[in-house]
Amino acid sequence: MFAVYAETFSFDDPLSGLVVGERPAPEAPDGWATVTVKAASLNHHDLWSLRGVGLREEALPMILGCDAAGLDEDGNEVVVHGVVGDPAWTGEEADDPGRSLLSERHQGTLADQVIVPRRNLVPKPASLSFEEAACLPTAWLTAYRMLFVQGACKPGETVLVQGAGGGVATALITLGRAAGVRVLATSRDEAKRARALELGAHEVFESGARLPVKVDAVMETVGKATWTHSIRSLRPGGRIVISGTTSGPDVDDAGLTHIFFKQLSVIGSTMGTRSELDALVRFLDATGARPVLDRVLPMEQAREGFEAMAQGDLFGKVVFTR
Rank of each mutant, 00 (worst) to 15 (best):
Phe2Cys: 07
Ala3Phe: 13
Glu7Asp: 15
Phe9Met: 11
Phe11Tyr: 14
Asp13Pro: 12
Asp13Val: 14
Asp13Tyr: 15
Pro14Trp: 07
Gly17Asn: 05
Leu18His: 05
Gly21Ala: 14
Arg23His: 10
Asp30Ile: 13
Asp30Ala: 15
Gly31Ile: 10
Gly31Leu: 12
Trp32Thr: 11
Val35Asn: 07
Thr36Phe: 08
Val37Tyr: 04
Lys38Val: 13
Ala40Lys: 04
His45Asn: 03
Gly52Ser: 03
Gly52Pro: 02
Val53Pro: 05
Val53Glu: 09
Leu55Tyr: 06
Pro61Gly: 10
Asp67Arg: 01
Asp67Gln: 04
Asp74Ala: 15
Asn76Lys: 07
Gly85Met: 03
Pro87Ser: 12
Gly91Met: 11
Asp95Arg: 12
Asp95Trp: 12
Gly98Trp: 10
Arg99Lys: 15
Leu101Gly: 04
Leu102Thr: 04
Ser103His: 05
Gln107Met: 00
Ile115Asn: 01
Arg119Ser: 12
Pro123Cys: 02
Pro125Ala: 06
Ser127Gly: 00
Ser127Val: 00
Ser127Glu: 04
Ser127Phe: 00
Tyr144Ser: 05
Arg145Asn: 14
Met146Phe: 03
Met146Gln: 10
Val149Met: 13
Cys153Phe: 10
Gly156Arg: 01
Gly163Trp: 05
Ala169Asp: 07
Thr170Cys: 12
Ile173Tyr: 10
Ile173Trp: 09
Ala179Met: 10
Val181Met: 12
Val181Tyr: 13
Leu184Arg: 01
Ala185Asn: 00
Arg188Cys: 01
Glu190Pro: 02
Val204Tyr: 05
Phe205Thr: 08
Glu206Phe: 13
Gly208Gln: 06
Gly208Arg: 08
Arg210Cys: 09
Leu211Met: 01
Pro212Tyr: 04
Pro212Ser: 06
Pro212His: 04
Met219Asp: 07
Thr221Glu: 12
Val222Cys: 03
Gly223Cys: 02
Ala225Cys: 04
His229Gln: 13
Ser230Val: 09
Gly237Asp: 11
Arg239His: 13
Arg239Met: 14
Thr245His: 14
Ser247Trp: 03
Asp250Ala: 15
Val251His: 07
Asp253Ser: 11
Ile259Ser: 03
Phe260His: 11
Gln263Trp: 08
Leu264Lys: 06
Ser265Glu: 15
Val266Ile: 14
Val266Arg: 02
Val266Trp: 01
Ile267Thr: 15
Gly268Thr: 09
Ser269Met: 10
Ser269Asp: 07
Thr270Leu: 15
Thr270Gln: 14
Met271Val: 15
Gly272Leu: 05
Asp278Lys: 15
Ala279Tyr: 07
Leu280Asp: 02
Val281Gln: 04
Val281Ser: 02
Ala289Ser: 13
Pro291Gly: 04
Leu293Lys: 00
Asp294Gly: 07
Gly305Ala: 13
Phe306Lys: 00
Ala308Asp: 06
Met309Tyr: 08
Ala310Glu: 14
Val319Gly: 09
Phe320Pro: 08
Arg322Asp: 13
